[in-house]
Design a protein around this nucleic acid. Structure first.
Lengths: 219, 219
DNA sequence: ACAAGTCGGTTGTATTTACAACAGAAAGAG
DNA sequence: CTCTTTCTGTTGTAAATACAACCGACTTGT
């Protein structure tokens, strides 16, 4: 797990914790390394999870498929981000969605009970960890609200503009990459891919934006 | 603030804290009582907030109006619930939506800095409070994901069924009240009111459900 | 009791979206 | 390199939605 120290150092979970201390905490929190092939399920809908998960290599999608085969992409997890923070509470029910590896991926599991119970040994970072987790869930919360803001627009064009301006703001540039291809973006915004593609091209022709694959420039 | 002790005792924020201890904490956390008339804004989009808010009387909506006057209702806050947990982090930006009183309401503000900084005095409940906050944001997080699940359905009927079955599950009964009138439900699900009303009546005629005002029974 | 306002349901039409199908470009496998 | 697969854009049609307008039932305030 040593090899991933640089990534762990920069995670929200270990914010404010020094490298040597992280090493101690890896043991203290019962960290274990797991590997997944592209397309593998890390978690499935309905599972009760007992781990906090940090992605150290690859890429994950949080998604949900309905009876009719429609897929909704609820989120995207990049290296250094975590998953499952919101399901550590004792009263959280089963997982409502799947977590799938987009590429070959490595994740580190942390034991819930060890995170939330007070550690009697030398590890004095539990309260900091809980605070970090609180901040992390808060941020995810704000992102979810932002996403709701995009999706609750009525038309495909409005959803696109809302999402793209948000991405531009996040990257502090009118030129940016998005972590989706067309189908994934459509699933993320809950719209039809072809209708969305159509709308994107219209906006390009109207001079509102330029794009190439997953690189966009707002004008 | 004494008069609201019964409500405070049962909030997520003070879960596991005894009544006498809550009294101490009210002072320790810098609690102040604020009153609002029906229609008043508790917070406005763009504000930077520095308080955790607990509703002790009345009813609030979290909502967002766009340029064209469309209103999206992002959430509903009932007595005993709180607002602002997700905006306590130092890096949280401005509030992305309005919080409005639906009825005459009373809220208690708690000072962020006092919640998150370690209290040097006798008050030993800070770490418990942060943990409680963590659980609270986690739950709100799960609710947001659930709401995303409803909204990301493609048709009005699917959104309605998704939302209503969720409410039925939450109330553990096929018969339940929802906290919205028709317009508000439409705003919550991001659909057109008349189209939704139409769809509801169709489903009633098909024998899928019965309803009267905001009371629903799934069959 | 009356007037004004709110709420829920209904309808028709214009607009938008979903779906299916296809073609060229790009990427990946052997 | 060639074949296969994936990705993106395009089009036409069927279906769903938004919008406006209207009505009757019910509330609220005076």
């Amino acid at each position: 797990m040593q090899q991933y120290m640089q990534i762990l150092k920069n995670t929200k979970l270990f914010s404010g914790v020094r490298e040597e201390e992280i090493e101690t905490m890896l043991i203290c929190l019962g960290a274990t390394l797991h590997q997944y092939k592209k397309g593998d399920y890390v978690f499935r809908t309905g599972e009760y999870i007992h781990n906090l998960t940090v992605l150290v290599e690859g890429s994950l999608h949080i998604q949900k498929d309905d009876y009719w085969g429609n897929r909704a992409i609820l989120g995207h997890i990049a290296v250094g981000e975590m998953f499952g923070e919101a399901y550590l509470s004792p009263d959280s029910g089963p997982l409502p969605n799947d977590v799938v590896a987009l590429k070959d991926s490595c994740v580190i599991f942390f034991d819930v009970d060890r995170i939330l119970s007070v550690c009697t040994s030398a590890c004095k970072f539990h309260s900091l960890t809980v605070k970090n987790l609180f901040f992390a869930v808060s941020e995810k919360n704000r992102r979810l609200v932002a996403k709701l803001g995009h999706i609750s627009n009525r038309t495909t064009r409005e959803k696109l503009l809302s999402y793209l301006s948000d991405e531009a703001k996040r990257s502090k540039s009118s030129s940016f990459f998005i972590p989706f291809n067309r189908q994934q973006l459509a699933d993320f915004l809950s719209v039809d891919r072809s209708a969305m593609s159509n709308e994107l091209c219209k906006m390009r022709d109207e001079g509102l934006m330029e794009f190439n694959k997953n690189h966009f420039t707002l004008l």
